[in-house]
Nucleic acid binder design. Sequence first.
DNA 1: TGGATTCAGGACTGAAAAAGTCGTATATTT
DNA 2: AAATATACGACTTTTTCAGTCCTGAATCCA
Lengths: 158, 158
Amino acid sequence: MLRLSKKSEYALMAVQYIASCDGRVVSAKEIAEKYAISFEFVSKALQALMRRKFIASQQGAGGGYIMLRDPKTLSVAEILEAVEGKQRLVECCGEGGAGACSMHGRCTIRTPLAIIQRRLDAVLQSMTVAQMAFPDDNLEQYVVISQLTGSLEASFSN
Amino acid sequence: MLRLSKKSEYALMAVQYIASCDGRVVSAKEIAEKYAISFEFVSKALQALMRRKFIASQQGAGGGYIMLRDPKTLSVAEILEAVEGKQRLVECCGEGGAGACSMHGRCTIRTPLAIIQRRLDAVLQSMTVAQMAFPDDNLEQYVVISQLTGSLEASFSN
DNA sequence: TGGATTCAGGACTGAAAAAGTCGTATATTT
DNA sequence: AAATATACGACTTTTTCAGTCCTGAATCCA
Ligand code: SF4
Ligand code: SF4
């Protein structure tokens, strides 16, 4: 219940690869072969990324995909939302707010879960496609984050 | 794909309620009625919590459940793991490590995902049952956390 | 012009997981 | 003994996931 779907995994692989090919047009076929995954299925993920204008598509022979958004400002959270839709921990912190769930009157875990939701969102927004594609450029940022989460753990896990 | 299962939601409700009843024995029936959820189903969650010794069970008339672990040291992460088993974002950061997935040779998103996994774990460990059951006692901790995640967002979302 | 290549997207299918139910056994109180 | 409660495995139903298939449209090249 906190597992990435295959479609999401494939989307992350694909966008990471396209970003790393910086400027070159890369086809769905090439991606499917590189990672040995289903061509039709990864195509679905690519189409979703195209609809959000994260990548541009070029039809016809020699066509494929190319990065449109700057990888440095494109977060994992945005990729996941593009392929899965806005995913919330529980029904009530989605579209309709508290009214979305029929038992919102009785429920007493809504507020703490909303807090956790915000923290989870922050984590998914904390990694960019650029950091996935060019890890060597970003080592110092990894360190900073692990220090932050370290102090976060130390304060509240006991 | 980042949604809590109903079983997990029920487990959180149940343990929050038992903790808030501090010392009193509370039956599965009472919990099911309070939240208007399936008695049999919430019982499964309670049994999982009992197996991990988070709560103790008392059979027979007048029986039920009572808190065993200190709510202040019991995190949401532990509750979720008790009812769902250890859940990882992707196969490869579970039991068998990198070897668990057949495509670990080709895969290039393993390392970034492992980093995200650690951060997600930290978030789930950052909230305790006590904080869910007695939110008024813990306001200052919420503030501290939101400052931490705030700086986390500010550093990396753009 | 026409065939090869590549993306776009809807319909469909099989497998797996989630959600919930049922039945029986066991422990405890009255 | 009767009533109340938990323990737990088996089972069913519903929903989601993962993948396939097919038709259509854009583009390139000979
Ligand atoms: S209101 Fe409570 S039961 Fe309904 S979705 Fe939100 S957390 Fe879950
Ligand atoms: S190795 Fe890659 S493909 Fe396999 S589970 Fe890990 S992230 Fe997913």
